[in-house]
Design a protein around this nucleic acid. Sequence first.
RNA 1: GGGAGAUUAGCUCAGUGGUAGAGCGCUUCGUUCACAUCGAAGAUGUCAGGGGUUCAAAUCCCUUAUCUCCCACCA
Length: 1019
Amino acid sequence: MPMEKTFDAAEAEARLYAMWEQAGAFKAGANASRAETFSIMIPPPNVTGSLHMGHAFNNTLQDILVRWHRMRGFDTLWQPGTDHAGIATQMVVERELAMAGNAGRREMGRTAFIEKVWEQKVSSERTILGQLKRLGASCDWSRTAFTMDPNFHDAVIKVFVDLYNKGLIYRGKRLVNWDPMFETAISDLEVENIEVAGHMWHFKYPLAGGATYEYVEKDAEGNVTLREVRDYISIATTRPETMLGDGAVAVHPSDARYAAIIGKLCEIPVGPKAQRRLIPIITDEYPDPLFGSGAVKITGAHDFNDYAVAQRNGIPLYRLMDTRGAMRADGAPYAEEAAKAQGIALGMPFSGAEVDAINLVPDEYRGLDRFEARKRVVEAITAEGLAVMVPNTAVTATAGSTPPPADDIPALIAYVEAKTIMQPFGDRSKVVIEPMLTDQWFVDTAKIVQPAIDAVRNGETVILPERDAKVYFHWLENIEPWCISRQLWWGHQIPVWYGFDLLPPTGDSDANFGIWKNDRTGDVMIGVHFFCASDELGAVRQASDHYFEVFNNSSMSIRIVENRSAALAFLDANAAKSQIEFPIWRDPDVLDTWFSSGLWPIGTLGWPEDTPELRKYFPTSTLVTGFDIIFFWVARMMMMQLAVVNEVPFKTVYVHALVRDEKGKKMSKSLGNVLDPLDLIDDYGTDAVRFTLTAMAAMGRDLKLSTQRIAGYRNFGTKLWNACRFAEMNGVWEGHTTRATPPAATATVNRWIIGETAKVRAEVDAALADYRFDHAANALYAFVWGKVCDWYVEFAKPLFDGATAAETRATMGWVLDQCMILLHPIMPFVTEELWHTTGTRAKMLVHTDWPTYGAELIDDASMREMTWVTTLIDEIRSARAQMHVPVGLKLDMLQLALDDAGRGAWTRNEALIKRLARIETLAEAVQTPKGAITIAVEGGTFAIPLEGVIDIAEEKARLSKTLEKLEKDMNGLRGRLNNAAFLASAKEDVIDETRGKLEQGDDEAGKLRAAIARLAEVG
RNA sequence: GGGAGAUUAGCUCAGUGGUAGAGCGCUUCGUUCACAUCGAAGAUGUCAGGGGUUCAAAUCCCUUAUCUCCCACCA
């Protein structure tokens, strides 16, 4: 059955993929013929839905490397899998529940909700794996992993426990980035700082007791520009709602304007007047005297800078908001607590601890969203006349004027500076992040970071392109503690159980719990003890040991309870019992997703078991990933693998760019410019999509994708297909055998194309070794289309019934085989299909040996000769076209002069030259006849008589134009050669090359001049 | 504020010291038996501006401009 005109991708892809899978072609170690291994861990896609273009790109590159190594006989593993993606997946499920009008997460309860998420995981994973298969990804699916698989989970927990025991993980009350929508802490990396239009308000904080001071302002020369008596200190803020949590006002120690009032108290001008708190005016290096008024309100519990100031100066921290970012409504009413709070504030110095038990929020703000509270605070202060006029041009908004503030604060106040401010947003929730004082788990990254830095510095792991290594270093060298606890439900629950630190009996006590009760009812907070263990049994053992040590009572036992309040209730209920039972409860939080994906390399290979796979494939060879997760993932994997198994996780990291739309915009759902890889595959076939991505994968460059480009590469597949179809029509595949080395060839064309094949094979290998995927693709494109199809196939046509027919058939078969082999890593489907369409093969293409031939196949004489032949044909065609000679018209040509090399070349290639240049006969002549066009090539001159057909003037113009261009080049070359400095300093081969070019050019120019002269004669 | 990168044909981009290329698009021609998802021919560039190093600069250095991205606590 003859081949179809085109490759039917839609029909063939599924069939071919099934064939590979059934044959186990992708299994780890399949086709291995040598001991060297090559392993890649897939960056596990999130089980949040489906794959996008970035995944298609990322996995295409991986597949190319994997298929290439597999064909080269490496023991190859491509490890697939998916990531549970805690916050992202939980968000997707919550959103779906909400859209379906179902009960929310809280109403469902943790267990039921987690079940829902598992359903999401199953369906998303099915989608994702299906997509990867359509993309042609040759992963070992039998090893598909998931970050919450039981064994992977065990590995994660073990690492947590180990790091905890080594003191590398700790729990602390710190200011963290809090996402009020998800009500969880997030890490620094999950915060996006975005510039938004905001405002800065200037307010007066009245001095306590109506105190006054002389405020003097000077210009740069020291001249007094302002001198007045003030009874307030002016501060600037972008967040008035946090004023209620101020602990101090700070000024720079060198700021003379405020020297007189350091240590004095001022009043926070918010809330009922009688209840306002007084805070001290302190000095700290942090305030910039040149910015604003030079005085900064210090709100330690709601600002990272202020937190540091508060820590340094022992300023209390007042948490004002609840987990949803609303002003607190818990605790005792404001009136009762204010005095106590003020007492603490006045009782400087303070330890710097949080004052959490009290609520500083006045009744009118309780429960309000932070932005609503901001609005009301601003209104109240303004109404009171405490807004400061800002005497500069930055004042853009006055009462009732435009522009309206962007953050929904009406322009009610006297003066406010419009100001673009950097505001933190949650990368998933897109809501404003609130710095929040909470208890969280942290990895002490500073203690494990150094090996990760060293490994890249000393080249044990190479990051490509190099500039990304700089980014990596910069981040690691300034690393902050990593907050790893998340107040979510979907993920690895933290393996820590808590129990109260109970005091031992005081001697005469016979009721052990009485001790606890006394402790609890007193002013001292009850401490908690941590039991970190890989499972509940371990925690119970630890707790037993602990309480046994404290109480020395052998009849005691441990009881697992739900949470802290259950533990308190349990103790209350059992206080009188003689039997001692101690409640412990597990930390409800889960680990940051990146903590678990940070263990992906060893976790998927079976660690902590000493598996054969771990020994063989770890450290992995290459990681292919996007630059956007260098910090999130690459750096964490480096740190964690080094901390856990003391080895780097991979030897090379290839960092690729982002896929953007054709206008260069990041693809996003909200912009509606997302190209779905599956749609493109449906329209153009997988090979076309893969080839496009590959050809555009220049290192470190964003990749702008257009469908036009994809169509072009689909055509490329068709081109190869039709070359094979041509071969079929000419009997190339009859009795064809697959062979590693080319057949012996005598014809120049055949020797030439064999040499070209050897050249492209070397180019492809070099390009892939350097991760220059674009070079590999472009080299193959130029070879297959530009050499094989444009020239070789055409050359071969007249040879199929000549003396070299058999040799030509064998050569063409071999060359096309090589095209399939070399293209297979990039275009697996069409090549595999052709492989079988064109003959009976011993092995599938996916397992066919990658060639190693090289320079020994390049025959310089043939290469030169074919260059001469193609140049001659080009010249004739060009002349014909410019003279408007009908394409179909066969012409007679005269040979005016030709050296021996030219004569030989002509003789050997006469048939093909005549065919491609549409020449009927060639005869020798001594001079150009009247009305002929002249063709000048290296070593010879030809003429084509066209009396009556051509326009003499036009031919003259053509020749003159060519000559002009040539002479311009010659002048340049002559200029260089006449320059003594050039001859003295340039390398010899450059000089030789220049001389050669000049000589050749002069020769050609001479011929052109002669031809022009001749035209003038006859004209 | 710090850092990185970009600026080459109409568009998207290659090109790291020897006088500029590809694909697409465009123009003209073409039903020659592999392919119209094609073929042949053709046009198009002060390599962002300025300065420097060099015999020689798109390429190396300095500088200016514009753009992009990353990081960062100016209230």
